[in-house]
Design a protein around this nucleic acid. Sequence first.
DNA 1: AAGTGGTCTAGACCACAGA
DNA 2: CTGTGGTCTAGACCACTTT
Lengths: 237, 237
Amino acid sequence: MTTIPSVPKHEWLRATLMDDIRGLPPHAPLPTERNLSDTYNVSRDTVRKALDWLHTSGAIYRVQGAGTFVAGMTITKTLSLSSFTRDMIDRGMEPSSKLLAMDRRAAGRVIGEQLGVAESDEVVRVTRVRLANARPICLETTHIVGALVPGLMDADLTESLYAILDTRYSLRVMRAEQIVTAVAVSEIEAALLAIPTHSAAMHVHRIGMDERDSPIESTTTIYRGDMYDLRFAVHRH
Amino acid sequence: MTTIPSVPKHEWLRATLMDDIRGLPPHAPLPTERNLSDTYNVSRDTVRKALDWLHTSGAIYRVQGAGTFVAGMTITKTLSLSSFTRDMIDRGMEPSSKLLAMDRRAAGRVIGEQLGVAESDEVVRVTRVRLANARPICLETTHIVGALVPGLMDADLTESLYAILDTRYSLRVMRAEQIVTAVAVSEIEAALLAIPTHSAAMHVHRIGMDERDSPIESTTTIYRGDMYDLRFAVHRH
DNA sequence: AAGTGGTCTAGACCACAGA
DNA sequence: CTGTGGTCTAGACCACTTT
């Protein structure tokens, strides 16, 4: 049993169990909590932390007095924070991007409020078409607080913006608030996404914040209704 | 300090803290974990359970070595399992329903598979227009395993179906899988929702299961794009 | 009766932030 | 350096399901 350093035990255990679960049929019983505790030489509380996560993700269900079982899962994801790049890889597709426009400009009232800066403060605006397996999936416009990202204009925006923010500026989006609505696409949007005008699309607005709750970016994404869906498991309590 | 019986301490503490938080400005510091532990006479682990939940909900953020703070929250909800009735009340609107149709029929292949019954098994189908403040918000078609709900045909379907399932049949939906897409409404849907044909709408398909992972209901809901949105906070890990 | 998950405790050590 | 949140432990009792 090789344990990877600097990773909390419950996270490692969670990943280990997730692998096991993939090889089991639905409703198969997992070892008991006390059993897992012995097997992996961790406390039962640590086992519970790992199982709690798997439960919230919808991968397992628990019955008091009976045991823990593999969920009859078709969806095993909770909605979590991931970039377009990561999202597409998870869906088994190859992501790419086409940069449409990029400039520095005054934030304006709306964006300024969202990002917690003055109207006149500078923001970087990046507009990209994002593709999966070379087919356009969505249109994405991101505003980033200018003071946080000096020199961003020179970066290669065909790769993951989140990756650039992390490696070049040590900015990591740890939390985000999202609002999802259904909209009909405009002529311009339709042309860029190669779909008919007024087609249905999913409009996602996200404000991404760092670990101290400071806004980093505000992004508006228009997803093709016929190419994208949102899947997740929810729970009572 | 009155403690309500039969409720786990961490749930009670969570609710108590949530009330406190509502009265505080963003970024205000919360008492330390050890402090809360003393104040409420619970272990630090119990305090952490409560704070963990508030953190996942997006109501607070934590900085190691510094403290716990009120989030600059505009959205403090995680996506959770709630009925239309509950959802609308949370949004400050008055929910109501109009029953369009209700019948018993063979499940068929698709619904049968979703509900884990044979094609020929009976399901109850309920179609309703759901309103908020007397304005139509969505069109909802629910299929329920017939064997689980004898006599449901006599029930008053203008009230919450989830409530009826719970009180009359002891069926509680504890987990659900959802798939959200954007669609253009058909002529019939448009008429029922009082919007133009081909308007954009949010299509939500949900399969609700009990605590043992047995499917109870399969529901398809068409939400007006101009009257409904999905709001939630997401986190890294 | 035996075994399971659900809750709770008191204490320990660590990594990190701030004065 | 002190205090904070992050992790982990060993043990206890409860509510519940199954035999």
